[in-house]
């Protein structure tokens, strides 16, 4: 077989892939639900009800989407420049650690300036954490996929050390858990009485800002050029190394905001199970969004709905909630295949 480029793919041909990929992942999940003894219609019904069936469910979905928007944006901006940042998980924890370090009483400031300082410091920590693999890539040509992955393990062990040592809550009854943030360091709720905090708004704003950066700034243009063809970009006079490093700072900073938002907005303290793999799920979110910042918001809402819904479904029907992870992994693979098939035609030799 051979792949033949399609000259002018129509609108249908460009919009169909995400739809088909999601439909395909539903098909895979249906089969697996049947194997586990669940009726697929009942399973998806329960997922939908669990994700959006009540005010509480809907807010839970929005809360779950918040960190995914941040990690999804982090991955999207990096992948667009072909910087393979698989380390959003570690960068998320870097943001969370800084939030706890500054927010548990080290600074006694009024709420707004304190939150701004903590947010910016979190971003810096995440940015610096990704700068190391990015420098190893640009200086030594070390593949950043492996280094960012390995950093996830290293940094999680570091967090474990912090939670059993310097950051351990003295009132924590021996649990590896940080002290709680002071009230000034908490992200308040958007509407009093509704369990949804300003981190969600910050995530939406971040998506908007990234969209502006991508479409309206030189950096956005340069990142795209480096991602499409680094050699050609270098030839055109774009400082490729500096663009890669800037992309790393941006990506690491965005991922760290997920940690800031989770600790300051939702949890109020840091434990080792702060993130159930939001960094990795961000990859799926970014790919489903075709790396588009505004698409990331939609994809994160969809992915969060699947996760929240699957938890409720699992409790009601007994089909394991890992069904959600399978759906998303298969959606990711089908998505990249579908994108290819929207641009190329398969021809038999």
């Amino acid at each position: 077989m051979r792949l033949e480029p399609i000259a002018n793919p129509g609108l249908m041909r460009r919009l169909a892939p995400p739809a088909l990929a999601i439909a395909g992942s539903f098909l895979v999940a249906s089969l697996l639900a049947l194997i586990a003894g669940g009726n697929p219609f009942a399973v998806f019904g329960a997922i939908l009800k669990g994700a959006a069936g009540s005010k509480f469910a809907l807010l839970e979905t929005l809360n779950r989407a918040t960190p995914l928007i941040f990690t999804g944006l982090a991955v999207a901006v990096a992948f667009r420049a072909r910087l393979w940042n698989i380390g959003a998980e570690a960068q998320l924890y870097a943001g969370a650690v800084v939030t706890v370090m500054l927010g548990t009483g080290a600074l006694h400031w009024p709420s707004l300036p304190l939150l701004v300082v903590i947010g910016v410091a979190s971003m810096l920590a995440g940015a610096l954490l990704l700068l190391i693999p990015a420098l190893l890539k640009t200086r030594f040509g070390v593949d950043e996929v492996v280094t960012t992955l390995l950093f996830n393990f290293i940094f999680l062990l570091f967090v474990s050390y912090l939670l059993e040592g310097p950051l351990k809550d003295p009132m924590g009854m021996g649990w590896p858990k940080s002290a709680r943030l002071i009230s000034e360091a908490r992200l308040p709720r958007i509407i009093e009485g509704l369990r949804l905090h300003w981190g969600f708004v910050l995530a939406l704003v971040s998506a908007l800002v990234l969209w502006v950066i991508n479409t309206r700034t030189t950096l956005g243009f340069e990142m795209r050029a480096v991602g499409q063809n680094a050699e050609a970009a270098r030839f055109a006079g774009i400082p490729v190394t500096r663009v890669i490093l800037k992309t790393a700072l941006l990506s690491g900073g965005l991922a760290a905001l997920a940690g800031f938002s989770e600790v300051a907005g939702l949890k109020g303290s840091l434990t080792l199970d702060l993130s159930p793999g939001y960094g990795y799920t961000g990859i799926v979110v970014a790919m489903l969004a075709l790396l588009h910042p505004l698409g990331v918001v939609v994809a994160a809402l969809f992915v969060a709905a699947i996760f929240v819904g699957a938890d409720a479904m699992s409790r009601a029907l007994g089909v394991p909630s890992y069904l959600a992870d399978i759906m998303l992994a298969s959606a990711l693979l089908m998505m990249v295949l579908a994108i290819l098939l929207s641009k190329f035609r398969v021809v038999r030799d």
Partner: peptide, 9 residues
């Protein structure tokens, strides 16, 4: 991701 989640499932 797929192999891990299929295994756990």
């Amino acid at each position: 991701l797929l192999a891990t989640s299929l295994t756990f499932y």
